[in-house]
Simulated scan of single mutants.
Amino acid sequence: MLTEKLKGKNAIVTGAASGIGAATALALARIGMNVVLADIKPEPLYAYAKELKSQGLSVDVFATDVSEESAIKAMADFAEQRFGDIHVAFNNAGVAMHGTPMHLLPIQDWQWVINVNILSIVYSIHHLLPRMLRHRQPGYFINTASIGGLQVNPNWLTGAYSMTKYAVVAMSEGLAQENKDSAIRVLVLCPSAVATNLGDSASRPTRFGGVTQRPEQAFLAQTIQKHGLPPDLVARRILRAMEDPNEFFIFTDSSARPVIENRHKRIQDAFDLTDAFLQQVR
């Protein structure tokens, strides 16, 4: 049982002030873990931590910007000093970049989405994973990608966003291969629509242009609030995947299955066309 394995162990959850991160931090704390909640928004983060502590749960907070390497190292140092060895790293923080054709996207927005969605995980691989491997205790290194990490939505103009999530999937696959003989399991979360504040751009740091509004992706907030799964259901899905040693991709529903199957068919068809070409020219 997961509770028996992780009770009294220690976790870090980024993007923990709301949405999937908040729900998963709560779920981990409820099975007896000590959880460091990290987020760029200090006020909702501290308020949420206070609420969890009032329930008798063992949590602490680390307000931080995961797009900075030094912040990830400081977060890892804090977690170890506060609770000890790290057993679960849930790299969940992310930002959306929907609704704008890529050639019209400002460079600062490219930098923001790349730094948060890709480089934060690179920094976690560099500063968190080695500590987890060093203590040789069972653990989980979980990265949040997206269903957009396996397909580009033509109706939502997700090219820039999906590019970052493809990278998360690739990094996760590589990590799973490299660490298959270790005590650390690597998982990648690829959720479809979840009722979160993913479309919020108010947390953009000053060096990427500061607080902004992206009216072109207002549809995203409306869609996921109307049709998205509740975050607590996603948290339960994550814990179930952690219990199953055969899971790697964590999906939240199968709505995108036909789109992804069609994409894979396009790839397979390209191999067939290449084989036919080679037969003709040889």
Rank of each mutant, 00 (worst) to 15 (best):
S192N: 12
N34M: 00
Q280F: 04
Y46G: 06
A49V: 13
T158C: 02
T274L: 09
V186H: 11
L175C: 14
I267D: 13
R214G: 02
I250N: 03
T100M: 14
G99R: 09
S146K: 03
V168K: 04
D232A: 10
D232W: 05
I118F: 06
P231S: 12
L28K: 00
L119W: 14
G148Y: 09
L129K: 05
Y48R: 08
A167W: 00
S58N: 14
D244A: 06
G21M: 10
T206C: 00
A76K: 06
V188S: 11
R240S: 14
N155R: 13
T223C: 00
G174F: 01
G174V: 09
S54P: 03
S120G: 05
T64K: 05
W156P: 00
Q177K: 09
L157Y: 11
L45D: 03
G99V: 03
E178M: 12
K165F: 05
K226G: 03
M102D: 14
M33T: 08
Q213V: 15
F277P: 05
D60N: 01
V116K: 00
T252M: 04
H87N: 15
D77W: 10
P42E: 14
I260D: 07
S192Y: 11
W110T: 04
S182N: 06
Q108L: 07
I267M: 13
V194K: 02
V211L: 12
A167V: 01
A202Y: 02
A195L: 01
P44E: 04
L6I: 01
R30F: 03
V13T: 09
A93W: 05
I238W: 02
S70N: 10
A38D: 12
N246S: 10
Q81A: 15
Q268M: 12
I86W: 02
A29D: 08
S254R: 05
I118E: 07
D39N: 13
E51V: 10
A276P: 00
R134A: 15
M132V: 01
T100K: 12
A193N: 00
F249W: 07
P215G: 11
I250L: 05
R237V: 14
A218L: 04
A193K: 00
M163H: 12
F78Q: 06
A276M: 03
L37G: 11
A27R: 01
I31F: 06
V116T: 07
A25D: 02
Y48S: 08
V194T: 14
F277K: 15
Q137L: 07
D275N: 10
P258I: 12
I12S: 09
C190V: 04
A16H: 08
Y161H: 12
R263T: 14
S70G: 09
R257S: 15
A145L: 04
A71I: 09
A176I: 08
I72V: 15
Q55Y: 09
A71Q: 11
K53A: 15
H126S: 14
